[in-house]
């Protein structure tokens, strides 16, 4: 794997997340088996692999969402900007404000569109007054590429939007807390093709400001939106490299089998 990493560093940006020898156990299940990976800043990194390969589990290590699952145990080292996020001094609640997450199914809160986006900034005390908050909400909704569609009904319930709009609202909600990293767990799997295209376009824009990590079942999607791709299989990180190379000239035979549809 060493040679791969040197190659990665040659691509473009600084390394944002470093993981070394990460293992995850759920009770007696060994879900992640020694993953090493470096995720670059302002890049879209895709995690692909068959169902149950551990890609979502690994994603949830990066903002310590696994802490909320009883019986989950994470070992190894994960550093964001050289700081260990599993250090006892790190507050996972603060960490999650810095590492935003978008989920598989759009999950707007049963509140207004405005309150959905204002939720994070409010609990983190990011706005001093109403005008501040209005500004933050507008900025987040613009970044979520949904401002034009909802600006006239900010106080309508978020659950009344279409599926694609709901997912972009959730992305806006996640970027409203000014995270540095955005984790996306199959964000398009519940959307129709048109909404998927809109969200993919949005992901492409988001990489200017964030380090985006996306888990996807669709290899086409990984190829379309990501610059780097990691292939997971049975809890191992099999191969990690530039997306173009993974899809055209993979080094590992398992990667090639998956790409060409023989496994998974």
């Amino acid at each position: 794997m060493n040679d791969m990493r040197t190659m990665d560093n040659a691509v473009n940006h600084d390394t944002k997340i470093t993981a070394r020898d990460v293992h995850v156990h759920y009770g007696t299940t060994h879900a992640i088996k020694g993953v090493d990976v470096d995720i670059a800043d302002r890049t879209v990194t895709a995690f692909i692999g068959p169902s149950g390969c551990g890609k979502s589990t690994f994603l949830r290590c990066l903002n310590r969402m696994n802490d909320t699952i009883p019986g989950a145990l994470v070992t190894g080292e994960i550093k964001i900007d050289e700081a260990d996020i599993y250090d006892p001094r790190v507050d996972p609640v603060q960490l999650r404000a810095k590492v935003g997450m978008v989920f598989q199914k759009p999950n707007p809160f049963p509140k207004s569109i405005y309150d959905n986006v204002a939720y994070g900034p409010k609990i983190h005390g990011m706005a001093r007054n109403k005008a501040d908050l209005d500004e933050i909400v507008e900025k987040a909704l613009r970044r979520g590429a949904i401002w034009d569609e909802v600006k006239d009904r900010l106080h309508a319930p978020g659950t009344g939007l279409s599926g694609g709009q709901q997912q972009r609202l959730c992305i806006a909600r996640a970027v409203a807390t000014e995270p540095e990293i955005l984790l996306m767990d199959e964000p398009c799997s519940a959307l129709d093709p048109i909404a998927t295209a809109q969200v993919e376009e949005l992901i492409d824009e988001l990489k200017q400001n964030f380090s985006v990590v996306i888990v996807t079942h669709s290899m086409q999607q990984a190829a379309r939106v990501s610059q780097r791709t990691a292939f997971f299989h049975l809890g191992h990180l099999v191969e990690f490299g530039e997306t173009g190379k993974i899809f055209t000239n993979p080094e590992d035979s398992r990667t090639e089998s998956y790409i060409s549809g023989r496994i998974g």
Partner: peptide
């Protein structure tokens, strides 16, 4: 998913309960 969404934004458990779970 609503709890995950709130926790994922950096809310604590009691904030999640008060502001998301109970209203729902």
């Amino acid at each position: 998913s609503l709890r995950d969404g709130s926790l994922g934004l950096g809310a604590t458990r009691s904030e999640t309960v008060r502001q998301v779970v109970l209203p729902a």
